[in-house]
Design a protein around this nucleic acid. Structure first.
Lengths: 241, 241
DNA sequence: ACTTTTCTTAACGGAATCTTAACGGAACAC
DNA sequence: GTGTTCCGTTAAGATTCCGTTAAGAAAAGT
């Protein structure tokens, strides 16, 4: 069963909560329910939901207080669902950290779209606009960081050049598979690359100097005679210890 | 020489535009105006505004088309201001990349708060609390204030120009990640930016002069050879002292 | 209209990087 | 043994890249 995103609903109106529960669970969210402000504050910290929906006025505490206290430690999206109210009130809520103010009666499709938009904002780690190569690959003592464009051995930057990094990155992504010289050439020098792989040998020498203890007995970068290069897979490396 | 954030307003209703212009410029925004969808698309890419407000229906193109075409290259916040409409329509707009849908007649205080919320979202990189509400990013002795549009070193304004600020702001938001030259060019000069990054080098020199003690050994702004620039992450900076 | 600031482009020097050539050893075939 | 091929290594020349300065154009302020 797929892992579902948790949504915390804070509202004292039992009927409305049930309505939201049905709507949200149908869309694959796991719904938690809090009837009071205190409960909401507590559950937010204990369950760490992906998103929070709340009434502006709760039986015990003003919703704005809940927002403020959650915002002391978390940026999870908070959408306020409530009756129409003075614009000052709405502005205050937003400025306190609410991400949206939605007027009741709620329109289901719009609510769901606003939820998606709010979640999207937290993901918008400012720009997956184009990069598929995010994150890091860790292989033994080696870390290939595609965000910093760097390679580390035990936390220390080994200072690869641009082409060196591209070569290591390429091999690392293929996780133990062999890449032919031709393939590497094309990846790095484009479709018009020559067929002299002298340049690869030079790069490989320089890379090994930087990341291998002993270039004669490499731990990470292997030559497959007559074929190409490969890097140890993460699984192999994980068993080293 | 006040440095102001640019807001692009796309609406064919002259009177409403004037109303927004007055409201926004009073709050320190610089207002640009587009009467048609084509104009809006074009101005977005040529002026690179910080934020965009638009009517759902423009004389020539559907607003949603404008959103889609802007979203191909930028994540700038887009708020749709329009008449009440079917929830499906609202949902579609939000799913296409709009950040909010605000019903006319607009309530000024609420609009401004929603604008602040939208701008706040663009900076919410990788869950960092500090600026949930404040609108500032603090990195070591450096403070990047997105509301005043200024950068301070130890409380004193270093007087960055507009482009300089945008560059620093962009890098600061990415919190330690490398931004390629190409990406920075696009963010600052739009999708039609040339591929000569000479302009970036000049800006970087000038910025470093203003915020670094020693431009040869920068503490904040690093060059990743052959790739782009990056700014120290707040986590790294927090460990300095 | 004038001054000042900001933006953009060009030119240059030094450093880092890329590329090519040359050499040497290992493996293999004959 | 000899020759050949393949791969690693080194070094040197060529090239690219980056920072810097300066000057003219454009924009903003007075």
């Amino acid at each position: 069963m797929a892992i579902r995103q948790k949504v915390l609903v804070a509202d004292s109106d039992r009927e409305f909560c049930d309505f939201l529960s049905d709507l949200l669970s149908e869309c694959g969210y796991e719904v938690l329910h809090a009837a009071t402000g205190e409960e909401a504050t507590h559950m937010a910290s204990s369950h760490c939901p992906e998103l929070m929906l709340m009434e502006r006025i709760l039986p015990d505490i003003e919703g704005i207080k809940v927002i403020q206290s959650v915002r002391e430690w978390s940026l999870l999206p908070i959408l306020v669902l409530s009756e129409p109210s003075e614009e000052q009130v709405v502005a205050e809520l937003l400025d306190s950290g609410a991400d949206d103010y939605i007027v009741k009666p709620v329109r289901p499709l719009e609510l769901l779209a606003r939820i998606r938009a709010a979640i999207r904002h937290t993901r918008t780690v400012s720009g997956d606009l184009q990069f598929a190569n995010t994150g890091k690959i860790v292989i033994g003592h080696l870390t290939v960081d595609f965000e910093k464009y760097r390679v580390y051995v035990d936390e220390t930057d080994v200072g690869l050049t641009q082409n060196e990094f591209r070569m290591v990155g390429l091999l690392a992504r293929y996780n133990g598979k062999v890449l032919t010289y031709e393939r590497v050439m094309q990846e790095l020098w484009g479709p018009n690359a020559g067929d002299d792989n002298q340049i690869l040998r030079v790069n490989m020498t320089n890379i090994r100097k930087k990341i291998e203890d002993d270039a004669l007995q490499p731990k990470y970068l292997f030559t497959e005679a007559g074929v190409g290069y490969r890097m140890v897979s993460r699984e192999e490396a994980a068993q080293w210890k």
